[in-house]
Simulated assay, not measured.
Amino acid sequence: MTFVRQLDLIDIGKTRVGIAVRDYIRAFTQRSRWSDDNLLLPGEISKYERRRAWTLCQRSRVVCSRTPPGRGGLTVAQQGA
């Protein structure tokens, strides 16, 4: 998984990587159920993913800017923002 390699690069720790993988699998499974049960409108998942990605980006900038160097955090400047 690409995102696991990315998490390893910022050294967040095995526990947090495990939680991220678990959450990814749960979200994927839930979206699949919604799709299989025809509970989604056309384009709804794409719209949701874009909104979610934007929100996570904003939150990560705050978290990373508050994490001391050497603790797995990047400053906003290091993130390329």
Score class of each variant (00 low, 15 high):
Leu41Tyr: 10
Ile45Ser: 14
Leu39Val: 11
Ile25Gln: 14
Asp37Glu: 15
Arg61Phe: 11
Phe28Cys: 03
Ile10Glu: 04
Ala81Pro: 00
Arg26Cys: 11
Glu44Cys: 13
Ser32Trp: 10
Phe28Val: 05
Gln79Asn: 05
Phe3Lys: 00
Trp34Thr: 04
Trp54Phe: 11
Thr2Tyr: 00
Arg26Ile: 08
Val62Trp: 09
Thr75Tyr: 01
Leu39Asp: 14
Phe3Cys: 00
Asp37Tyr: 12
Asp11His: 04
Leu56Ile: 11
Ser32Pro: 00
Val63Ala: 10
Gly43Val: 13
Val76Cys: 06
Arg33Gln: 13
Pro42Phe: 05
Leu9Asp: 06
Arg16His: 05
Cys57Pro: 06
Gly72Leu: 01
Arg16Leu: 03
Val63Phe: 08
Cys57Ser: 14
Gln78His: 02
Glu44Leu: 14
Ile19Val: 09
Ile45Val: 15
Gly13Trp: 00
Gln6Ile: 04
Gly70Ala: 07
Ser60Trp: 14
Gly80Met: 06
Thr29Glu: 14
Gln58Lys: 15
Leu7Glu: 01
Trp54Ser: 13
Cys64Asp: 12
Lys14Ala: 05
Gln58Val: 12
Gly80Thr: 03
Ala27Leu: 12
Glu44Val: 07
Tyr48Leu: 15
Leu9Tyr: 02
Glu44Asn: 13
Arg5Phe: 03
Thr15Trp: 04
Val4Leu: 03
Thr75Gln: 05
Ser65Lys: 08
Pro68Phe: 05
Ala20Met: 04
Gly72Asp: 02
Lys47Asn: 15
Ser46Trp: 10
Tyr48Ile: 10
Pro68Trp: 04
Ala27Gln: 11
Val21Asp: 00
Leu40Trp: 06
Gln79Tyr: 02
Ala53Asn: 11
Arg5Gln: 05
Val21Gln: 03
Arg26Tyr: 09
Val17Phe: 00
Thr75Arg: 06
Val4Thr: 07
Cys57Val: 08
Leu56Phe: 11
Gly18Glu: 00
Ser35Gln: 12
Leu39Gln: 15
Asp37Arg: 15
Ala53Glu: 15
Pro69Asp: 04
Ser60Lys: 05
Asp37Lys: 14
Gln30Thr: 03
Ala27Pro: 04
Arg50Val: 13
Asp8Ser: 05
Met1Phe: 02
Glu49Arg: 13
Ala27Ser: 12
Arg50Glu: 15
Trp54Glu: 15
Gly43Tyr: 10
Gly72Cys: 03
Val21Met: 01
Leu41Glu: 14
